[in-house]
Design a protein around this nucleic acid. Sequence first.
DNA 1: TTCTTTTTTTAATAATCACTATATAAACCG
DNA 2: CGGTTTATATAGTGATTATTAAAAAAAGAA
Lengths: 206, 206
Amino acid sequence: MAKGRPRAFDMDEALDQALKLFWTKGYEGTSLSDLTQAMGISPPSLYAAFGNKEGLFRRALDRYMNEMSGVCGVLNAPTARGVAEAMLYGAADIDPENPPGCMLVQAALSCSDASEAVRQELIGRRKAGEDALTERFARAVREGDLPPTANPATLSRFLTAVVQGMAVHAASGVGREVLVDIAGATLQAWSALVDTGMSAQDRAAE
Amino acid sequence: MAKGRPRAFDMDEALDQALKLFWTKGYEGTSLSDLTQAMGISPPSLYAAFGNKEGLFRRALDRYMNEMSGVCGVLNAPTARGVAEAMLYGAADIDPENPPGCMLVQAALSCSDASEAVRQELIGRRKAGEDALTERFARAVREGDLPPTANPATLSRFLTAVVQGMAVHAASGVGREVLVDIAGATLQAWSALVDTGMSAQDRAAE
DNA sequence: TTCTTTTTTTAATAATCACTATATAAACCG
DNA sequence: CGGTTTATATAGTGATTATTAAAAAAAGAA
């Protein structure tokens, strides 16, 4: 079984503490002494378990994606509109247990050159989410749930932008009511977005 | 007139360089050596002219608000829809001269405790922009430009969220076409948002 | 010129950053 | 028991952080 001295801290609990810090203060705003203090471990233990600060961040980020995000579940909603509803109200439903805002936006929207790899990782994860959403809307078109004239990429971009804007609002400390208001407004506009033949880009070009 | 040794650098040019750095890397991501190097001055000159890093940031932020932002002009559009168009296409129209994204979102969405004052300042400026927009839409209701049933606060929140989401997209490096697409989609949805009696919040409560 | 004022240059400050060398402690195996 | 392995604790590493002390330089005023 286990050889050598057993680890004295719980891996998941420690990752949760690290995640909370990165989520609140961002990657660069969180120092190693912040981390060791909150995780209740010493620097050598941290480095033995996670390699370095960036390794710890990536593990915390994985945990964020697996635990928090109902993103996977969101895409399983039966209709495109249901997907939009789930995403928007998910973004509005801030849990007092967790930091406000979205980890993918909060952690490193800007940073020094030293952390560019982390920033790129977050950009990639945001793009992956948007791409998955685009594919979900394309499926909705194929299934007849959305009209053949609907533009999956445009819908996905728009919805992602609104959710990210809600994340900025949440990070600013606005209340749940404000976020629900934005979500509701977006849903109210949803059908007008769906029922068009041209992409908004094409319309603008005329 | 001027007494003492004259300043050897141009104040506005130096501020532009500082602004570009803060805008790209954020407040904490920009180091003093980054700043002195880009501004072409030595640390004591920087401190004599601006007090400290935060003082320099605030001056650069003021310059950003005065120079870049057509925000003041945007509110002068004749109609509420015109205001929305100007904001959205303004957010889409990324200037290759300037860093992508919005300084108010980019500079310190998250940070360490040491920079909390800067973060709060940015939150306040974002809120001021949203409040001004709300007042502009309220005026549109009074003038009959928007129906009396329109909710100025909801419209303002929604529009601000979209623009902030576009800023996140821009910071991720997406091209102009993508931003224009989001702007167009939002405008397409605009009339559906305006023509409602209840706030989206009220609708959600039913 | 000399005095005063302000800026510049050079060099250094204490504090914090991420990270680690060394030694000890705690488990399993034989 | 001794030997191996892994994690811990203590203490420190060099690099970088924002900031500044001290002196020289460049202007106007007397």
